[in-house]
């Protein structure tokens, strides 16, 4: 049977090969960058004073752990339902082929008052994240203390004050599609979208 009509169909295998090589090189560079960033983070978190800020601006006393710090927490469900879901970055210390395939998880930073314990817990979590990214993480912070450190490495942090995990989960599920919230301190699951 004549092959005439088919000889122009389809793709060029040489082009496919070139694209595949370029993709692999890009991947290699991204992985190296992630390693570099992780090394910087590890160095920082190895110091107990990582969260210390030598800041002297106090004009008055205020509650560092507010009752509620997310205005959206009091927004009615219908208004929230009318808003599109937003993406969550992977963080610069990790690389994976398709970060969008990773689910979004909330980590509640509830290690209060003890910076050494906090940095140790974060280091442990983020080492795992660097080695084998398991989720796109949203850090849910009771206070703003860890924000300036985590933010440097492209992690998303929200200040949640004293809000309960269920309220936090409902909002973050709407905003980011979060599926679960775990405690940084114990690793325990505090909230799940399936519950």
């Amino acid at each position: 049977m004549a092959a005439g009509p088919n000889d122009l169909a389809g793709v060029d295998p040489d082009a496919l090969r070139v694209l595949r090589r370029a993709g692999l090189e890009r991947q290699d560079l991204a992985q190296r960058l992630a390693r570099f960033e992780f090394q910087s983070l590890r160095r920082e978190l190895s110091s107990a004073s990582v969260f210390d800020l030598q800041v002297d601006v106090a004009t008055r006393k205020a509650d560092p752990v507010p009752e509620q710090a997310e205005p959206e927490m009091s927004m009615p469900a219908e208004l929230l339902a009318g808003l599109p879901q937003l993406p969550v970055p992977l963080g610069r210390i990790a690389w994976t082929k398709r970060p969008e395939d990773l689910q979004v998880a909330g980590i509640l930073i509830d290690v209060a008052g003890d910076d050494a314990a906090l940095s140790s817990a974060l280091l442990s979590l983020l080492t795992e994240h660097h080695r084998n990214p398991f989720a796109r993480i949203v850090f849910l912070c009771r206070t703003l203390d860890p924000v300036h450190v985590l933010g440097r490495y492209g992690f998303l942090c929200h200040q949640v004050g004293r809000a309960d995990p269920a309220s936090i989960g409902a909002l973050m599920q709407r905003r980011y599609g979060i599926q679960q919230i775990r405690s940084l301190d114990s690793g325990r699951k505090l909230w799940s979208a399936l519950d």
Partner: peptide
């Protein structure tokens, strides 16, 4: 934002 909180003000991050 931490600096603001240290100054004693409410922050919406």
């Amino acid at each position: 934002a931490t600096i603001i909180q240290r100054a004693g003000y409410s922050v919406f991050l």
